[in-house]
Design a binder for these strands. Sequence first.
DNA 1: ATGTAC
Length: 476
Amino acid sequence: MSHPPPALRPTSPVRWEMARHGAMRVPGVVFADEAMLPDDDGGTLGQVANVATLPGIVGASYAMPDLHLGYGFPIGGVAATDVAAGGVVSPGGVGFDISCGVRVIALPAARAELDDGALDRLADGLARHIPRGTGPGGLWTLGPDELDAILRDGAAHAVARGWGAEADLAVIEHGGRVADADPDAVGPVARRRGAAQLGSLGGGNHFAEAQVVAEVVDADAAAAFGLAADQLVVLLHTGSRGLGHQVCSDHVDAMGAAMAAHGISVPDRQLACAPVESAPGRDYLGAMSAAANFGRANRQVLTEGVRRAAREALGVADATVVADVSHNLAALEEHAVDGAQRTVCVHRKGATLALPPGHDGVPEPYRAVGQPAPVPGSMGTSSWLLAGRGGEAFASTCHGAGRARSRAKARKTWKGQALRTELEQRGIRVRAASSKGLAEEAPGAYKSADDVVAVCEEAGLSQRVVRLDPVAVIKG
DNA sequence: ATGTAC
């Protein structure tokens, strides 16, 4: 950290400003209520300040209420750089799990129609059809040509090969295919790892959950999203697995080596970056987009696992994709900056696209109500589906509950087996591959997603649409 | 997050 961060000054009950100091080019802005502000023993606010020093940054270095310490950038951070003004792109501003995100799948069944046996069968089916845990093993093992096509065309290629329906693509962010992907910028190690992992969940905070629509806050938006009270959904939270991780590592190394040549110095080596309009910048963005396509294809292939489980367990005809949005991505977008339209590179790291109603980037079926933004809760607690409102922070909102205690501390405080019993006693089925992983994901290690989404609503970033309560948790 | 460390 370059300097100790100065005190945050409230400009509203849910918005705090950090004045420019040191090498900061813009102020910091944190959306949070007083209780959820980090005390910064861990340096999270110092990371907000560090990001504000990046070349070309405009507006502010933003942080969502679920912010916590990350690699270079805080998780929950949003930073936009002006491309024509030498603005940079930084792999640390996207994160290791490129295109990590959430897919919501609606099942044509209501909780009230199902007995406990049906829910047991659904949990078992999801556990059987969704590969999980670290390491290789996915639903679709890829040869080199198929991998290239996935990196170029994302979920669209998976659908073309029979993994799902054309209609699925209409509601996925960017139509399931990120433009300007450069498969050649994805190195051989990343390719090898990815070829064996398409259609797999991973570990850590990734999960599949069967959930019920427990509260409808915005009836019009819920109807537009095709969701009704008491309806069952499945939520998938996963990303680009080892492939994205390797792409991030490779390009952090490459940029670190190239920074001096571009005359860039940063207060933390984890903020390695390069101008968007430079060879290392273009290479990273091309590889990142390819990894993002892998991430969307991963969730698309897993959706077929969900459909198989639903057909077997419930006998329901089919399951409908409601939304698929990433919360770890950089994107070139047009935004008003100081009254002028500029092309900016928006880094969202643990932050979700939240375009407002009417914006032409919102999937057409939802244009009147705004971009759907799924927010996964911590294990066994509520998740949310929001609708974007634009607002500050380049049309972004939160991405989850936000970790409040480290994995190590969680392992010391909670026991996986006891957590499993507690969840089962609350009527939530648990299918977990690792007891240690369960302890690390204890709900007590996280803030409440309910509080986080309420702050985002009060700050004008997003509107709550439905609350989703878990009935079955499937984890690596 | 991750074939759970340079």
